[in-house]
């Protein structure tokens, strides 16, 4: 498994698709910082953080396209086969791919957040005293935000293993995730609460409360269920 994970990290580092998406996300982070800076009311680093962790739609776009490029490309190039006949079980192949994919998502999401907070903190100050409780809240919010991104990535990975085509995956990932957004936000709240999107959108309210445990449970359940579904599909797939 470890050797396969190392190979996946090499693919991630060399993937021009990943590098392009990462650069685009960083440009967007810079653009958002510029927008916050030009707002009538000065947006502090703390306020910018609260806004940035709820940019769910942007994360959906980023994760959906990244999944299509990083996972489906392997099916379209037929390079996925080499992982299988290289002596690795299909479970190892899926886990290694998910580990590298989640890592890529985490790095980009974290850097995206950091750019906005640091830029706004330099220009308008952080705007909040860093007490123990504030620091704790920040840590909890960052943890929920990153875990939410991984849950979203796992959902997109599952779609990738089902669709196997870059274009279809990008369309389905974005379409289905927006479908989940619709259910989460417009549907009955008790159903919405079971979706990772609902919890991502409510991070700033849930962090630091007992509600965050449900968020963690929903995120973890999403990762496990969709990750297993991706494996179950891949296990039965005849590869080209």
């Amino acid at each position: 498994m470890l050797k396969q994970i190392r190979a996946e990290f090499l693919k991630l580092r060399k993937s021009s698709g990943f590098l392009t998406i990462a650069v685009v996300m960083l440009v967007i982070a810079g653009f958002m910082s510029r927008l916050y800076m030009s707002a009538a009311d000065p947006v502090t680093g703390y306020e910018a953080f609260k806004r940035a962790i709820t940019t769910v739609e942007l994360q959906i776009l980023f994760v959906g396209i990244f999944a299509a490029v990083f996972i489906c490309d392997e099916f379209q190039n037929r390079t996925i086969g080499a992982s299988v006949y290289g002596g690795n079980g299909r479970l190892s192949v899926v886990i290694a791919k998910l580990v590298a994919f989640f890592s890529g998502v985490l790095v980009v999401a974290a850097v995206f957040l950091a750019i906005i907070i640091i830029t706004l903190s330099i220009v308008n100050g952080f705007g909040e005293e860093l007490t123990t409780s504030t620091t704790l809240w920040l840590c909890q919010a960052v943890f929920l935000y990153l875990l939410g991104c991984v849950a979203m990535a796992s959902f997109s990975a599952m779609i990738s293993y089902i669709a196997k085509s870059v274009l279809e995956t990008a369309i389905f990932c974005i379409g289905l995730t927006y479908g989940v957004v619709f259910v989460a936000m417009r549907g009955p709240e008790n159903i919405g609460k079971l979706t990772f999107i609902w919890h991502m959108a409510k991070i700033q309210n849930l962090a630091g409360t007992s509600g965050m445990f449900l968020s963690v449970a929903v995120f973890l359940a999403t990762i496990l269920v969709t990750g297993y579904a991706a494996y179950a599909v891949f296990k039965r797939t005849d590869l080209k």
Partner: peptide, 27 residues
Amino acid sequence: GFIVETPAAYPYMTAAENLEVQRLQRG
């Protein structure tokens, strides 16, 4: 060692990088 139909390689990598991926995968 397998060659199944047209060999598949990572298009954005050089020959040596493609072999490095294989080397890692096979340990």
